[in-house]
Design a protein around this nucleic acid. Structure first.
Lengths: 232, 232
DNA sequence: TGTACATCAGTGAACGCGCGTTCACTGATGTAC
DNA sequence: TGTACATCAGTGAACGCGCGTTCACTGATGTAC
């Protein structure tokens, strides 16, 4: 509770961090499905049963890694928004900056990206605790659209009637105050962004895209257009 | 070589198919990383060493599943194009039909989608044999754009200068005769389509998108717009 | 048509390995009086 | 300040399980003469 923690508490935090770091290395080597407590312990020079002082099971360790990943990605997105806002960038440029930050984070931590946006781990189902951190990037993007809407507005075509109820529901849930076509466009853009990053990371660009930074910059501009932030 | 195969050859084809079917079930239960030859053999009532008469290793079995998946997805896309072409549909409608076929295939075989477009399996690297079947969907989409281009043309904004060399390279490689902005737009649309399908399949729409068919139809329309096939 | 031989599918045992989790334990660190 | 006790990190053995791959083998199916 106190800010000056006891030696025991400090040691516990350090060992916990070391376990997660080693587990992230294991993720890279073997993937989430095969992440092995025994291997983590071995690498740390501990006996495998000792890990149970820190995580009650393998799945809880996975959950901790997932939460960390969402948080770290969310922080990267928020930082990009903060920096470009401070530089006086208009909404479109900030949107593109945040997309670039997401890609940059994923390129630096491909296995953590795979952990949260790749194929689900069979037999593992993420608990509720992961929902909050998971939405930080989306919230950042919504914030940009909000400020654009409050400024010069967003250039979006009207929704098809079939999507109206769904778009109204989305709007009420996480984009209150914005027009319904914005919520629908945002979710689509987010899924498309995930696709751009995952394709690059998961090997789909092999023999197809070479200048990946230029290609992504162009695609992020298209995504901005798709959410009503056209160029010029 | 003859069309009337001997009993032995026929039996071999049947057992090979049974092994792959059972392996596909294993994929669903445990994921590609943990796909187990012994479990497949057990389920088939064989002894595990017997599988080595059919596949020289676990990785070769995985490769066979990957090729099958690409082929099956490619066939679904081609069939959708053929049917909507036969119905006299214009390029935009055919584009949307093919996107819908990709999504439909993925919803019916989520674990095969994950096998080819999800996180890579650590320690496994796909051999050359998978390249051909992998491009059938993209080829179908290019075909649509080709016929649209030959007809009323494609409505695409000019490329940023930074992407011009890359777009020229892509065009020479797989979209010969089309303008460079088409190749770039196609690859981006394809990656975005992968994102839409993967997000839906991998659980990213939980608590976000409810009417997924309507949402996808709208997004596929946006993708069509992105490759120069605007509505109306 | 019959026989000898080659091919091949499938068996069963073995090698050497790894896994998650539990449990009774030792010994060091912290806490209350 | 000193002592008794509680808390907790880490140990080591064990349980019960699963894995990919190799190898010598049996016996059925096909082929050549």
């Amino acid at each position: 509770m106190s800010t000056v923690r006891g030696a025991r508490e400090r040691a516990r935090a350090e060992v916990t961090a070391a376990i997660k770091d080693e587990a992230r290395r294991g993720l890279a080597a073997e993937g989430a499905a095969k992440l092995s407590l025994r291997a983590v312990a071995r690498e740390l020079g501990m006996v495998s049963s000792a890990l149970y002082r820190y995580f009650p099971s393998r799945d809880e360790l996975l959950t901790a890694l997932i939460i960390d990943a969402y948080d770290s990605l969310g922080a990267a997105a928020e930082e990009a928004e903060r920096a470009s806002l401070a530089a006086g960038a208009p909404p479109r440029a900030r949107w593109i900056a945040v997309c670039g930050a997401v890609r940059g984070w994923a390129l630096a931590r491909p296995h953590e990206w795979a952990l949260v946006y790749g194929s689900p781990v069979p037999g593992y189902s993420a608990p509720q605790d992961t929902i909050g951190p998971a939405s930080r990037v989306a919230n950042t993007l919504i914030g940009i659209l909000r400020s654009a809407y409050a400024g010069h507005g967003l250039a979006l075509p009207p929704l098809p009637a079939a999507l109206r109820p769904e778009a109204d529901r989305m709007t009420a849930e996480f984009a209150d105050g914005l027009p319904p076509e914005v919520a629908a466009a945002l979710v689509a853009a987010w899924a498309q962004l995930v696709g751009l990053v995952s394709c690059e990371l998961f090997g789909q660009y092999e023999r197809v895209v070479e200048d990946r930074a230029a290609f992504f910059a162009h695609a992020a501009g298209q995504l901005a257009h798709g959410v009503g932030l056209p160029a010029a």
